[in-house]
């Protein structure tokens, strides 16, 4: 499976310390087991890899020429589960722009508990209501990066 990327994305990989092979593996795994999000109106997908200290996301499209990698991002905060425990009805519009490809369900935007450096707090995530797989958008990852920096400074 070939991965195509612009110079901008190549630089992003370099700046963030990702290897192309790692990202390729994340995408291949998602393509084989179907655990990925698909945008409601575009042929864009999000695949992820949870390791102990880092969750990495790849945003990509598929064309006849292979995989086009559009964005890569990560966060160190570990998602523990839904804030408040269980998935229950909420009275705000929590439908995300994403569909869980595996379950064919519209993913919801919900608060999840996130832990980092011994601190657990809530944060916003995209959650499949059926398989309860959690994802984070690129914008929220940026927000989490700021939160992580603050915790690193304060907990040092």
């Amino acid at each position: 499976m070939d991965i195509n990327m612009t110079e901008e994305v190549q630089n992003l990989l370099k700046d963030e310390g990702f290897k192309k092979e790692e990202i390729q593996e994340i995408i291949e795994k998602a393509e084989s087991n179907g655990k990925k999000l698909k945008h409601k109106s575009e042929d864009t997908f999000i695949a992820k890899d949870d390791s102990e200290n880092l969750t990495t996301y790849a945003v990509y499209t598929i064309s006849g020429e292979g995989i086009n990698l559009n964005n890569v991002y990560s966060h160190k905060m570990h998602i523990d589960g839904l804030t408040g425990g269980e998935l229950h009805e909420v009275e705000n519009d929590d439908q995300s722009e994403w569909i869980c490809q595996k379950c064919n369900e519209t993913a919801l935007e919900r608060n999840v508990d996130m832990s980092y450096m011994g601190v657990t707090r809530a944060g916003p995530a995209i959650v499949c209501p059926k398989c309860q797989e959690f994802y984070v958008s690129d914008g929220v990852a940026k927000t989490l990066k700021t939160a992580e920096s603050i915790l690193e400074e304060k907990r040092a």
Binding site: E91, N92, R110, N111, G123, L144, A147
Partner: peptide, 12 residues
């Protein structure tokens, strides 16, 4: 009680 499910960040 509505606000229990309002979107939150780690600094809320």
């Amino acid at each position: 009680d509505l606000w229990k499910d309002a979107p939150m960040s780690p600094f809320t």
